[in-house]
Computed example of a mutant assay.
Amino acid sequence: MMGQLPASDALSILVQKHLPPPSRPVRDLSGSWHATLDTSDVDADQVLEAASTNSWRKIAVLARSTLERAGMELDEVVEWWTVRLYALARLRLYSMLRTELASVPEVLEGQEMPFGLLVLRATEAKFRGDTRSAVEQYTVLIRMCRERGGEVWRSRAIRVGMMLAFALAEARDYNAAIELLDPLVERLLSDEEGEGVQLVIVAARVWIQAGDLARALELIERAEQILPSESAVHAHIKQAKMVIATINGDFADGDGEAEGVVGALNRAVVQFYRAQLDAAIATLDAQLEAQPALVASADAVVFNTATLYELAAGDEAAVVGRKRQLLATIARWAAEPGPSSSAFKL
C-alpha cells in the first residue's frame, strides 16, 4: 500500500542540469535518521525538530517503517498513516498521496475516516488542479460539521470554510471567497478569548488580493486590538501592514523594521519601487547569507532574487552565473521539499 519514495527531487534534478560536478552540493535524500536504517528509537521531539526543518522525507520514511511493524493498535495505525500522508503532501508527491489515500478505507476496517483525513482528501483534489472537486468536498465537510454541532465541530466548520474560501480565491473568484469569509472573520473577531484572531490575519490576504486594501487594513487593526501585547502574532500584523503600505505606494511605512525573511523581502520590494535595484539585491543577498536555511524554504525570496538578477546590469551569461550560484547555495541548505524549480528561472 505504501510506495518507495523517489530517489531524487526537483531541486536535485535542477542541480544536475545546471551545475558542473565539482559545484554540486551533496544532498541527503536517503530519509535516514541514523547511520543504520533502524528508526525504533526516534522520539516525538526528534519528529517535531524534523518537521521544523522541513525534513519531510525523513518523516515519511519513519511513518512507513513504523507502520510495517506488527502488533499496533488501530488508533496508532491511523495516527501514523495520517503522518505519512501529510508528509507526502509536504513533499509534493501528489500521485503517491492519492494512491495511498485510496488505501485508507482498507486500513480502517470499516470504521469512519478521521476528519483530518477527510480534509486531506479534499485538499488532494486541489493539489492536482481539480479545484471544483475540492470545493465540492469542502462544502460537504462544512455541512457535516454543522449537522453534528458542538464547539469542536463549529471550530472545524470555520477552518474548512476558510480553506474553501482560499480555494475560491486561488481560482480568482474573489467575490465568492469574500462572501464566505465575511461572517467567519466577524465570528472570530467577536470571540472574547481571541483564539482565532491569527486566522483573521491570514484571511485578510484575500481582501488584499482582491484589491480591497481598506477592508483588509480594518480587519488587521481590529485583530491587533484584541491580541495581548506579548502575542507573537503582532509580527505577522506588522508584516501585513507593510504589504498594504507598499501596495498603496506609501514606501516610508512600507520600509518598516520587521525582521526575518519576510521583513527582508518587504524591504527589497520597497527598494525596488524606489528604483534602488542594487540595494534590493543586496538586501536579499544579505538575508541569504544570514539565514540560508530559512531562505532555502521560501519560494518567494528565491523567485524575487532571481528576478532582480535579471533586471540588474550585465549580460545574459553573468545573469545565468548569478542564478547558478543562487541554486548552489540554496541546494546546500534546503531540506525537502526545497523551493520549486521554477523559482530559479533557469
Rank of each mutant, 00 (worst) to 15 (best):
I244Q: 05
Q239S: 13
Q287P: 04
L265D: 06
T246N: 08
E259M: 13
Q291A: 15
Y273V: 01
V302D: 05
A280G: 01
A235D: 10
A268K: 02
A264H: 09
V320R: 14
K238C: 12
V301Q: 00
A252P: 04
M242P: 01
L311I: 07
G260D: 08
Q239G: 10
I281Y: 00
R222N: 13
N266A: 08
I244S: 06
G249C: 07
H234G: 08
G249S: 11
Y273R: 07
G249H: 12
Q325C: 09
E316I: 11
Y273Q: 05
Q287H: 14
L284D: 01
I220E: 02
K323Q: 12
A245Y: 03
L294F: 09
N248H: 14
E289V: 09
T305F: 04
Y273T: 03
R267K: 14
V301I: 14
A300Y: 02
A312V: 06
T307Q: 12
Q287E: 12
A252I: 13
E221Y: 05
A318F: 10
V301L: 06
V243Q: 08
A280I: 00
V301Y: 01
I247E: 06
T307K: 14
V269E: 05
V269F: 03
L288V: 05
A275R: 11
E259T: 12
E289D: 14
D253S: 15
Q271F: 02
E310T: 13
A223G: 14
F303Y: 11
S229P: 09
E289M: 15
I220R: 01
L294K: 09
V319F: 09
E230P: 09
A282D: 01
R267P: 00
N304D: 08
V261D: 04
V270E: 01
A268S: 11
I226T: 08
A240S: 15
E221L: 15
A318G: 07
A235Y: 08
A282G: 07
T283Y: 02
Q271M: 04
T305E: 08
V261S: 07
G260N: 10
Q239A: 15
K241Y: 03
V295Q: 00
L308D: 01
L284K: 00
F272P: 02
F251S: 04
R222T: 09
S231F: 06
V319S: 12
P228K: 03
A313V: 07
Q271S: 03
Q271V: 00
Q271G: 01
Q276V: 04
L294H: 08
I226V: 15
R267H: 11
G314P: 07
Q276E: 10
T283L: 01
V302F: 06
T305Q: 10
V233W: 06
T305C: 11
L227H: 08
V319W: 05
F303A: 13
A280S: 00
R322I: 10
L284A: 04
H236Q: 15
A240P: 07
R267F: 03
A312H: 10
I220L: 06
G263K: 00
L294Y: 08
R267G: 01
